[in-house]
Amino acid sequence: MSDLIANIGFLQQGPFAIPRWEALFSNIDLLWQGTIVTLTVASLGLALALVLGTVLGVMAASHWRVPRAFTRAYVEFYQNTPLLIQVFMIFNALPMVFSGLFIPVITIGILGVGMYHGAYISEVVRAGIQSIGRGQLEAALSQGFTYVGAMRYIIIPQAMRIVLPPLTNQAVSLIKNTSVIAIIAGGDLMYAGDAFAGRFGHYGPTYVIVGLGYFLMCFPLAMLARRLEDRTRVL
């Protein structure tokens, strides 16, 4: 058995050699800390994106001109500039505008992915609302519901079934996109991996394990999306 392993060249030397794996696993708590930061940023960022996306989506589907124009501008800005530059701006430009302002890394990450994916989610929500027939809104309004009340009790619950699969896809890309904070501010799983790999040169095992970490966070959501999609097809 050990003969067999001894003969597998790439475990003896090169980027995936066994000593590199050993070094990684003895320092695994570094990656673990990064994972916790990433999970925090991802979950709070997702919460922000969902709230923002729902509010903006409802505004975008309304007949109120000013809120509609505002959401349009917001969405176009966030969808057509790279997330990296947006995060850079939050990190560097905001403290210049409000001098002395210190924004913790985690907050930068949450704002970054939250506002970026909020734009995408608002488009998903808008499309979902618009897919519900006009008669539903009219029925609700004719009973004395306000526009917001009609959205809350009648339209959004129905749009939810249609919107859940694309929403889950957004959650998955949000998790992966938390990794941009590695480049700007640091602290997350990607950054922890970069830092460790850069210090000792153990790139191979580090990126395998970091990649696996992201996979384990995203895959359950992707599975959920598939399940929901199957269910909405039956409905």
Binding site: G135, A139, Q143
Partner: peptide, 20 residues
Amino acid sequence: VAKVRQSVAMVFQSFNLYPH
């Protein structure tokens, strides 16, 4: 308008019941 609509009920050609 919303207040007055509470006492003005409408029945539509296509029913428009809430399916959920």
